[in-house]
Design a binder for these strands. Structure first.
Lengths: 125, 125
DNA sequence: CCTTCTTGTTAGTATATCCTAACACATATA
DNA sequence: TATATGTGTTAGGATATACTAACAAGAAGG
């Protein structure tokens, strides 16, 4: 299974929710992402089959090592791009929404330039 | 018909090719975009039915007023975003490729900030 | 205990986007 | 003229992503 945009977003969301509450359930993901239960159910089953997360018999969702690795990379990228837009002057909510889409399409090269921009900004250059 | 990402790209491409050669043919679009002839054939037929372009009996493709308006807006956006990435240090080819995807997802708000950034850069600020 | 709410699944569908195979037709060329 | 080449269409599929309807099963509360 290739990791596509939707899959990356689901993994990222599991990571975020797991930092906010004890157990991550499908219903939490539905609420957070605004998708229907069947959509989330099927997507998570495929991610579990592909080895990116585990769903306990009780329904608690945890990232596997490989799933966590992807989720953390996506999340970091998401935050950095959002930060970048906020520095340009975009409001926080829009910056995060834009970053959520864009992170999946931006080349490594441009992302590196954005990180460099953030580093320079931090050092007051 | 709603204008989606692919449709915007086709209209933009017609505009670009029309600036490069006398007559725009489907084959030119296939070559430029790397899509199969059936894909382009069907997409252009739909754009024609929706009133965004005309296909002459001889097969020459021209944008209508509404099609041109969209194409020009998309093209300008594409160029501005690419310019922006080039200023950050991304190479031209990658900058254009990134811009081609991103232009469809970026909010008006962030795009305005990017244009502002370009204006400031031009004025040496 | 029965009803209701929450949660999750299965089955079927929709849309956007692309593809290949096969064919039609015009033009160009040997 | 016969064949090859280029261009476009139709028909049928594939994939990614989402939806609704209908059902199942556990928990909560009267």
């Amino acid at each position: 299974m290739n990791i596509h945009e939707a899959a990356e977003n689901y993994l990222e969301r599991v990571l975020i929710i797991s930092g906010e509450k004890e157990n991550v359930r499908q219903a939490d993901i539905c609420a957070a992402m605004g998708h229907s239960r069947p959509t989330v159910s099927v997507a998570l089953r495929e991610l579990a089959q592909a080895g990116y997360l585990d769903i306990s018999p009780a329904g608690n969702i945890t990232l596997t090592k490989s799933g966590r690795k992807i989720a953390e990379a996506v999340y970091e990228r998401h935050c950095n791009i959002a930060k970048f837009f906020m520095i340009l002057g975009t409001g926080e909510e829009t910056a995060y929404a834009d970053a959520c889409k864009i992170e999946h399409y931006l080349s490594e090269e441009s992302y590196e330039r954005i990180k460099e921009f953030l580093r320079n900004k931090k050092n007051g250059r």
